[in-house]
Design a binder for these strands. Structure first.
Length: 311
DNA sequence: GTCTCATGGACAT
DNA sequence: TGTCCCTGAGACG
């Protein structure tokens, strides 16, 4: 869940439901009591994301900075303004769609429920609430400290400023580490996690063990463009789908054109098992060449790749 | 019930 | 390179 596309959706959602509203901020669990007191009663001005970092700007020049880490999750609830808002983060299952809050159509919202479990932060306004659990980082910081966090991060494909492709290429090309390790380094590119790194390397048919310095500048720029494309799809879909409809058949075998047309017609989403090319498909045949997909540990994380397509 | 695993990252060594 | 933090779901008995 919490790869960059999820955090981007979160930022948008916070702006939609709480933007311009005065929030009561509390820490039912107690671990964020002091930070919550600094923000309590202030108005949310803006919500933004950079990579996997979420920044909620309040009208007293303080910022709620949240990084979900592996386990963090936000859940939402409230009146009809919360219809379509979704809980984002763990618990997660691969390929699962986000679960949607049960906003009330009749606007009969009567306040947040009693907090369940270890709620680090609860944000509540007159229209609804949001609970944060299990985040790696949750802090109230100044604007200057916000800039310091941003300064540690590489370009964000979901921001994709002019010149970012070149910055990303320069970051990659100067390094001897395997490109698969570099893609997970948030200083090089912000927002890519374990699923996107495996999938985009497959989509570009790049050997994950290739040193960054061995990539051509043009290939690094193509890689950036593919990350931009596939992560923007993730923002739109609310899940990570890197395969195309021709691979959305029941048995995972490559579909014939007629089957592709049928898949396109019958469903806008692939089954969970067909959403990825290589991620968590070790031991299974590659969707393209039928070679067995491999997995290995790389800097403490599981890497998946096709040794034939990505040679 | 217990154990293991998971789409992160900071920090120590 | 290893350790720790953090939470919940699923496998297993």
């Amino acid at each position: 869940m919490p790869e960059g596309h999820s955090v981007r959706r979160l930022a948008r959602q916070f702006g939609d439901v709480f933007g311009g509203r005065r929030l009561s901020v509390s820490s039912p669990q107690g671990r964020f009591r002091e930070g919550a007191a600094l923000l309590d009663g202030h108005t949310l001005l803006a919500a933004e994301a950079h990579g996997k970092h979420l920044f909620l700007h309040f009208d007293n020049a303080l910022v709620l900075h949240v990084h979900l880490g592996l386990y963090g999750a936000w859940s939402f609830g409230g009146d009809s303004t919360f219809n379509g808002s979704s809980s984002i983060g763990a618990p997660r299952r691969v390929g699962e769609q986000e679960s949607f809050a049960d906003g009330n159509d009749d606007d009969a919202y009567s306040g947040p429920p009693a907090p369940v479990g270890a709620v680090r932060v609860r944000l509540a306004a007159s229209n609804g609430w949001a609970d944060l659990r299990g985040a790696t980082t949750c802090e109230a910081i100044t604007l200057a400290e916000t800039d310091l966090v941003r300064a540690r991060l590489g370009p964000d494909p979901l921001v994709n400023r002019r010149g970012d492709a070149g910055r990303f290429a320069a970051n990659l090309l100067g390094r001897k580490a395997p490109v698969a390790a570099l893609l997970m380094d948030q200083k090089i590119i912000a927002g890519v996690g374990n699923v996107y790194r495996a999938e985009v390397l497959f989509r570009r048919r790049l050997d994950p063990w290739l040193p960054g310095s061995n990539l051509a500048d043009s290939e690094a720029r193509k890689l950036w463009r593919d990350v931009v494309s596939v992560m923007n799809d993730g923002v739109a879909d609310g899940r990570i789908i890197t395969t195309t409809p021709r691979y959305w058949t029941a048995n995972g075998k490559k579909a014939k054109p007629a089957a592709e047309a049928a898949a396109l017609k019958s469903s806008s989403f692939p089954a969970r098992d067909n959403a990825h090319f290589v991620y968590k498909r070790d031991g299974l045949p590659c969707r393209v060449c039928r070679t067995t997909v491999l997995a290995a540990d790389l800097v403490g994380r599981r890497l998946y790749w096709c040794p034939s397509c990505q040679a």
